[in-house]
Simulated scan of single mutants.
Amino acid sequence: MRQWNLLGAWSLFLREVRRFLKVKMQTIMTPALTAMLYLVIFRYAMGDRHVPGMNVDYFTFLVPGLAMMAMLQNAFANTSSSMIMGKVMGMHIYLLMAPLSAFEVVVAFLAGAVVRAVVVATVFLLVLMPFVDLSMPHPGIVLLYGICASIIMGGLGLIGGMWARDFDQVAMVTNFVILPLTFLSGVFYSVKQLPEFWQVINHANPFFYLTDGFRYGFLGVGDTDPYASVGVVLVTVVVTVIACWQLWRSGWHMKE
């Protein structure tokens, strides 16, 4: 029976973390600057308006959604960019030859994506928290939905990076799939503000439940019951990890 190569998996994880930490201006400072821009635009543009049906002002409602959107996008970017850079530079073959099982590789990549997503969200929230009242009555829900969302998006980024042949194909997935789904996940609005038809469409977006559950952990209010969605989220995490494991084990689009 093959023993776990914990040192190898840890080394790959450290490589992923150090890779995004080397470009701090892009991965850490940029989210902080973006947070300040959102503060200026939405805080003073919306004033003291409240979200219909919720006893919370619009900007306070917006902050957790923006943090989740940043987590989703950065988790996807971390794994997809790592994979496509390896392909373009011809380095991915060495990873395939490394004495690591498919599961160890997948866990290392997804753990790196989670770390980047959490770092970005933390910086984002630290910048904006002095300007909003985020009591966070359910920190466990915040942690659960944040980590699950990062794993799901890190897995999708890994699959997208395995499928893509160049940066253009990764950008196509990001611009035409990831960005629309994240922007239409209830980040900027309560689903109750939409016409009934668009409420149904919005509920079909899986990112909506991640955003709404994450927001509920911070505010104690949301458009859905986050406890009822936990099962679906956990199943999605398991399916994503298994899909990544099976595809990596088969060398899907990696041996061309």
Rank of each mutant, 00 (worst) to 15 (best):
L7H: 14
A9V: 04
S11E: 15
L12Q: 11
F13T: 06
L14S: 12
L21Q: 12
L21G: 11
K24A: 14
K24D: 08
M25D: 11
M25C: 07
M25P: 01
M25G: 10
T27H: 12
I28L: 15
I28C: 00
M36K: 03
M36F: 15
L39C: 05
L39Q: 07
F42W: 09
R43H: 10
R49W: 12
H50P: 11
H50L: 14
M54H: 15
Y58I: 02
Y58E: 10
L62D: 02
G65E: 08
M68Y: 04
M69P: 05
M69K: 12
Q73R: 11
A77N: 09
T79Q: 00
S80W: 06
S81T: 04
M83R: 04
M83L: 15
I84W: 00
I84G: 01
M85Y: 12
G86K: 01
K87D: 04
K87P: 10
V88I: 15
G90L: 04
G90A: 05
M91H: 12
Y94V: 06
A98V: 03
L100Q: 00
L100W: 01
L100M: 07
S101A: 06
V105W: 03
V105H: 08
V105E: 08
V105Q: 00
V106P: 07
A108P: 00
A108V: 03
A113F: 07
V119N: 04
V119G: 05
A121H: 05
V123K: 11
V123M: 13
F124Q: 05
L125T: 06
V132R: 07
V132N: 07
D133C: 07
M136I: 14
P139C: 00
G140D: 12
I141P: 01
L143A: 12
G146C: 01
I151S: 02
G154F: 03
G155C: 03
L156I: 10
G157K: 02
L158P: 04
M162S: 09
R165H: 10
R165K: 13
T174C: 03
V177H: 06
I178H: 02
P180E: 01
T182M: 12
L184H: 07
L184P: 09
Y189T: 00
S190H: 02
S190D: 00
P195Q: 09
E196T: 14
E196Y: 13
F197K: 13
Q199P: 05
I201N: 04
H203K: 15
N205R: 03
N205A: 09
P206D: 00
F208M: 14
Y209A: 11
L210P: 07
D212C: 07
F218N: 02
V221P: 02
V232R: 11
L234N: 12
L234I: 14
T236A: 14
R249L: 08
G251F: 12
W252F: 09
H253F: 12
M254K: 08
E256G: 15
